[in-house]
Design a binder for these strands. Structure first.
Lengths: 240, 240
DNA sequence: ACCTGAACACCGTTCAAGT
DNA sequence: ACCTGAACACCGTTCAAGT
């Protein structure tokens, strides 16, 4: 958390340059995954020596921090913030949807987020909102902490787990890969794996990513609602 | 999936040897994380040249496959298997609990699992059971596929997200790290982050990991129950 | 069948030096 | 303040060769 202010003392021009480096690094991760990002490759894109980057970032971990920050900053928490007319559960759904919306354009970044939610400024803002809403829903502070941090990770996992997310990006190559994946599932014994072979299409590729993410959010919200009514510490009726 | 049978044609003695390599690799991952596992390090533990391992495994990815397989094999699916007297939801809970029980001793392996659930034999068995139970609960095959694969990943994320899971293993070193983490959260402004500062203890370290995991499973099962009653394709009442 | 040695093409990072 | 060059200690992996 001491690193929350890690870019606080920089000059405007310098911050811009650091921001440009992060932007380029994020583009590389989007295109080729986290493993595709190397200091040397990134330096090459700027036609600069690899060591030049070490003036802007202490090490690679700090560069990855910057990428995670950038994505978490895109989580729009302004929607219905503290609107007392809206139920806490509806507001929570809005927060989770905002997180999905921010991460979906950068699925490869998902793996970077869990360890950084409680150490980056925008991650802390997201966690604070989530915990506060759960407290409003009647969860004790420690239960809200456990449930809230998990909810955030579960939403990140929702993006990572989208069927077909591991397929290549492009048009024809993606179709080919999807077909191969589908065929490999259909090659399984329908006697041993009836459910999987029956759902090979849906497992290989997402017919509607929007519907998939909506299903996941619905499930998580229903889950919170379910245990809230069981475990709430106060007895005031839950607002709908 | 063609790799499901990747170790089928081996001799007993050879399989044993491969199994010993995987066992040692898993121990390294448990102790030092996935990044701590290198071919050269592993070879050193066997007092053998790094290249010796390449006779047993095509490449590092296949070694990681073996580690993932090993953990997924520990998922005990025999409990109440297809017991018609038990509701599908109770059985689903049992499956998710079995997955938690298998992964908890190897939290660092969690990151290896998502991409391998539908490509490893024990992962496919787990997915098949999950999808079949959801179908029994009234979900259409494609919805069951989306929800089921996500549920598995959500449970894996539950283990990864355990508060304090990133702390060092040992006794005193762990206490020190937990105290630092707690202090860094308490250093935040209580005006801006009231919920986080109030729950610093629970966020830094899990008071009761058992209770944490139970909460997560309760939430997921409640979520499935909640959307099942809304979206089920058949109208027969859900068995309790 | 099983293992070795040398070599290749990479990594992140340190350190001293430049401007 | 910002960047470079050389070097270090690592990687995974190929390939030809040993037994």
């Amino acid at each position: 958390v001491q690193d929350v202010v890690r870019s606080a003392g920089r000059q405007p021009k310098e911050r811009l340059r650091s921001a440009a480096i992060v932007a380029r690094a994020l583009a590389i991760v989007d295109a080729e995954g986290v493993d595709g990002l190397t200091i040397r490759r990134l330096a090459q894109d700027f036609a600069v020596s690899p060591m030049a980057l070490y003036w802007h970032f202490k090490d690679k971990a700090q560069l990855l921090d910057g990428i995670a920050d950038r994505v978490l900053e895109e989580v729009d928490l302004r929607r219905e913030a503290s609107d007392e007319a809206v139920s806490w559960l509806t507001e929570l759904r809005g927060v989770l949807e905002a997180l999905v919306a921010a991460v979906r354009p950068h699925p490869a970044v998902a793996t970077l987020l869990p360890s950084r939610v409680l150490t980056s400024e925008p991650g802390l803002l997201l966690a604070e909102r989530t915990l506060a809403l759960l407290a409003r829903g009647g969860f004790a502070a420690d239960r809200a902490a456990e449930l809230g941090t998990y909810l955030i990770e579960a939403v990140v996992a929702l993006v990572s787990a989208e069927p077909g997310r591991d397929l290549p990006a492009g048009g024809e190559a993606r179709e080919d890969a999807a077909r191969v994946k589908r065929a490999s599932l259909l090659a399984l014994s329908p006697r041993r794996f009836p459910a999987i072979t029956a759902a090979a299409d849906a497992l290989a590729e997402c017919a509607s990513p929007d519907a998939y993410h909506a299903l996941g959010i619905d499930m998580l919200i229903a889950g919170v609602e379910g245990i809230a009514s069981r475990t709430s510490t106060n007895s005031k009726p839950v607002r709908r």
